[in-house]
C-alpha cells in the first residue's frame, strides 16, 4: 500500500493545482466582459448550427466503430501482458495458447479490415 501513497500525494498536488487553475484562476483572476456573441458556439462567425452534433444530433458512426475496435484490441493487450510477463514460466504451452488467442483476434482483425472497418474516407 505504501507504494501507492506517493501517487496519492502527487495526485492531491496535481488536483489542487489543476482544479484551482480551472476554476479560481480562470473565473476569478481575469476580467469579465459579457457579450452574447462570445458565449455562442464558435463557428467562424456564421450563425451556429441549431442542433450541434452530439447533444441531440449524431456522432459519425465511424467513431463508434473505432471505439469498438479499440476495445477488442485493448482486451487482447490485457491478455498479452500477463502472458508476456510469465511467458518463460508458461513455456511452450503458454506460447501455443497465446498464439491461438492472437489468431482468434487476428481473424476478427482480418474481418474488419476486409469489410472496410479500417478505412476512413
Amino acid at each position: 500500500m505504501t507504494l501507492y501513497l506517493p501517487i496519492v500525494i502527487l495526485l492531491v498536488l496535481a488536483l489542487v493545482f489543476a482544479a484551482s487553475m480551472a476554476t479560481v484562476v480562470s473565473d476569478g483572476v481575469g476580467p469579465r466582459r459579457w457579450n452574447r456573441a462570445k458565449l455562442d458556439a464558435y463557428e467562424c462567425g456564421i450563425e451556429p448550427t441549431p442542433l450541434p452534433a452530439g447533444r441531440a444530433g449524431r456522432f459519425p458512426v465511424k467513431f463508434y466503430l473505432t471505439a469498438m475496435l479499440f476495445i477488442v484490441f485493448d482486451v487482447e493487450i490485457i491478455f498479452l501482458y500477463p502472458w508476456a510477463q510469465s511467458a518463460v514460466q508458461l513455456g511452450v504451452f503458454g506460447l501455443i495458447e497465446i498464439g491461438l488467442f492472437v489468431l482468434t483476434v487476428g481473424a476478427v482483425y482480418v474481418y474488419v479490415w476486409r469489410r472496410g472497418g479500417l478505412d476512413w474516407n
Binding site: Y64, A67, M68, I71, V72, V75, I78, F79
Partner: peptide, 24 residues
Amino acid sequence: AFFVMVVAAAEVVVGLAIIMAIFR
C-alpha cells in the same frame, strides 16, 4: 476479474453495436 473485464469489453462492443443500430 481479468475475464470480467474482457466480458465487459465484449458487452460494450455488442451493446454499442445494438444501441447504435437503434439510434440510427
